[in-house]
């Protein structure tokens, strides 16, 4: 699969992966394995996982904002059922929600 094109559309259900990559990655641990919905496509960005180590981070990769229900992140979440969290995730950290990690 090419990483140069956005693979997801607004409203798609996605699972945030744990790809086991060490170093300067921008997908926090607390959100890995969680399922949410594509809120928007943010554009193409140079890969920060490469840029952090002096490389160019090219070609640019798609970045999305994913919206998750707080109840789907924290089983004991204390708040309103409509509370959500939105977070930016790069394409290669996502899979369609139907697929297993």
């Amino acid at each position: 699969m090419s990483e140069a094109e956005p693979s997801y559309a607004v409203g798609d259900r996605v699972r945030i992966l744990d790809i086991g990559k060490p170093g300067h990655v921008r997908t926090p641990t607390y959100i890995r394995h969680k399922v949410g919905t594509i809120e928007r496509f943010c554009g193409m960005f140079e890969n920060p996982e490469d840029k952090a180590y002096g490389r160019w981070g090219l070609p640019p990769i798609p970045l999305y904002r994913v919206q998750l229900k707080q109840d789907d992140i924290w089983p004991d979440y204390d708040g309103a059922p409509g509370d959500v969290l939105e977070i930016e995730i790069y394409d290669h950290w996502l899979a369609p929600a139907g697929e297993t990690t």
Partner: peptide, 15 residues
């Protein structure tokens, strides 16, 4: 109030 939802935005990447 609980009638108002809260959205937390994690500014974790490029925006």
């Amino acid at each position: 109030p609980d009638a108002v939802d809260i959205a937390v935005h994690d500014s974790n990447a490029d925006l």
